[in-house]
Design a protein around this nucleic acid. Structure first.
Lengths: 330, 330
DNA sequence: GCTGTGAAATGAAATGGTTCACTTCTTGTC
DNA sequence: GACAAGAAGTGAACCATTTCATTTCACAGC
């Protein structure tokens, strides 16, 4: 494995000065066609590949965007990641997805690795656990953007979707369909997004002149398949059974749908279901799922744009608006 | 944003020489406790973070593993990625997932970026389109490992699963269940893995004393939801309808299941379905899916291990063995 | 007290691309 | 033909770390 050729080799081979080759590569200064031709020939001949590390060493930042996410397998984040990646590529960057799985040690590993790499930007799904690490990164000069919600202190620019409104339109929808005995299938309040969605549901419930205390609720660990199934069965076992269920996300909504089908219920006649997220599986489910769509691709795309923008940190943006996708399940 | 402090600042603040700080950081030479104490104090005080780029500039390679994949959203690759990531983290590396989406230009962008970054290793899902790029990378000193199948020429160490055997056990299973009119729901032969699976099916069909020419087959673009549904309907429209279908992967098997349920068929009585991959959705489908499990996490983990191993390139490994997961759908 | 030995510490040189003050060349104007 | 001004090209110095030949030091053995 021959050692790499350097800009000096290119300059010598093209009989041109160092600075001219550098100008050719960076495009910051114009150069003549003669020089350009000679340099290009030399680069091709020597198979020269510039060493990106040097720019970083000089005090620059590497063309890497880190995406810090608790569960990269979640279809929602996957789509966000696509948005980030597309923008990153168009701007000569590369994305490192850091899957923390909620593990603090893993978060620390990534924070250390990213600092040492001098990453250009970090886009992180907001959570209380990573707040400290993010502010450390920010202090060392990394552009940080949080996703989903504003972290207390307002330190970081944030791209969010209006979850309150999402919960509101989901609940309004089933109430308009005439349902009066409704349940919310969610997760413990740790996640503030879930809390917001539930709050939106409560608001819609009140607005319809109903008593929010009568709104049923079952919680589950959304990341566990067995917990999802168990919570779904718990919903179906409520006496009397709700006629409609608004779910915290599509993954658990689909679990509920599967359980309902298995126990012989007709959807939407016996049970209406509303999901949240509009993941791919929602449209191709046995009973296509009514759900709240979040512009997740745009979310990621916009976050990357903000992170790399000239005038970072910009003032925090107004949240994106979710919309209802009505399908068969209601 | 104060500029970063350097190893020189640390040396000065700790009243110690440059080299000693370097030795402390790398651990390559022992140093006394006195020095250690002074250095640690200085590092803490200055909030020093070493600049990883310099090591790379000195001719080393960055602690980055690139995972080149045509569709990072595919649950199969997600799990492979988890295996890679876990190994990477344990070895102080970080993973860049490069989602090519089969786009040649995108592949080229990544090849360029990865070369310039001097990535340490590349793990790529084998495809004919990336062969040239991979060999270019390898020539420039990057460790390349291909995944799924050996690329012609045998240039790269490979980690694979025995798809021939997978197809064989899937087909054997439905034949043992007594089915005699069987279809294969797959994709055009471009993907050699699908080809292998089909070949395994044909082998099992012959072994059972049946005429392989009678084995039905429908193909679809596996990446398109609408194509999957259309192909599923095509299977159900065959006259006479097959009593069992072996599918090229779980995603399309689930589409078939959904279509079958929608048209009122009972599974497995009217139609038995076997998938391939054992994705998460297979177990929680309305009718839990019988499928061929591939040790995908191990696949990724082993690939990363191979890529970073001392004695890369090792001789190519024997393929991993798939196994059948029997559930309700057969 | 002298020497030999090994451990620890030192700092100049090297790594490769960018920067910038400086030189050289070209073109236009009167 | 002289001169100004802008364009293009040059190369030494710089960035933050590692490497390694050299120096320093402590201590054991005689």
């Amino acid at each position: 494995m021959a050692t790499h050729s350097t800009i000096r080799d290119v300059a010598r081979s093209a009989d041109v000065s160092l600075g001219t080759v550098s100008n050719y590569l960076s495009g910051k200064k114009p150069i003549s066609d003669v020089m350009r031709g000679r340099i290009e020939a030399a680069i091709a001949e020597l198979q020269f590949v510039p060493n990106a590390a040097v720019r970083v060493m000089q005090g620059g930042r590497s063309h890497v965007i880190a995406f810090i996410v608790p569960d990269s397998g979640n279809p929602f984040f996957l789509e966000v990641a696509r948005g980030i990646e597309d923008f990153a590529i168009d701007n000569g960057h590369v994305v490192v997805t850091c899957n923390t799985e909620g593990d603090l040690e893993r978060e620390r590993h990534y924070a250390k690795a990213l600092s040492e790499m001098r990453v250009g930007a970090v886009i992180a799904v907001a959570s209380t656990s990573n707040e400290l690490l993010l502010s450390t990164l920010q202090k060392s000069g990394v552009r940080v953007v949080t996703l989903g919600r504003q972290l207390p202190g307002g330190l970081f620019p944030t791209i969010a979707v209006d979850d309150l409104r999402g919960g509101f339109i989901a609940m309004s929808h089933v109430l308009e369909r005439g349902h009066r005995r409704v349940a919310f299938l969610g997760a413990p309040d740790a996640e503030s997004q879930i809390r917001e969605r539930f709050a939106g549901c409560v608001a819609a419930y009140s607005d319809a002149g109903l008593d929010p205390a009568e709104l049923l609720r079952v919680d589950a660990d959304l990341n566990s398949p067995t917990a999802r199934s168990a919570a779904s069965r718990a919903i179906l076992a409520l006496e009397p059974r709700p006629t409609a269920v608004v779910c915290a996300n599509d993954v658990i909504a689909l679990a509920l749908e599967a359980e309902a089908i298995r126990s012989g219920l007709r959807i939407p006649e016996d049970l209406a279901i509303v999901g949240y997220d509009d993941i791919e599986g929602a449209a191709i489910a046995p009973i296509p799922l009514t759900t709240v769509y979040q512009p997740r691709y745009d979310l990621g795309h916009r976050a990357a744009e903000l992170a790399l923008s000239e005038n970072y940190p910009a003032s925090t943006e107004p949240p994106f608006a979710p919309s209802l996708v009505v399908r068969t399940s209601t």
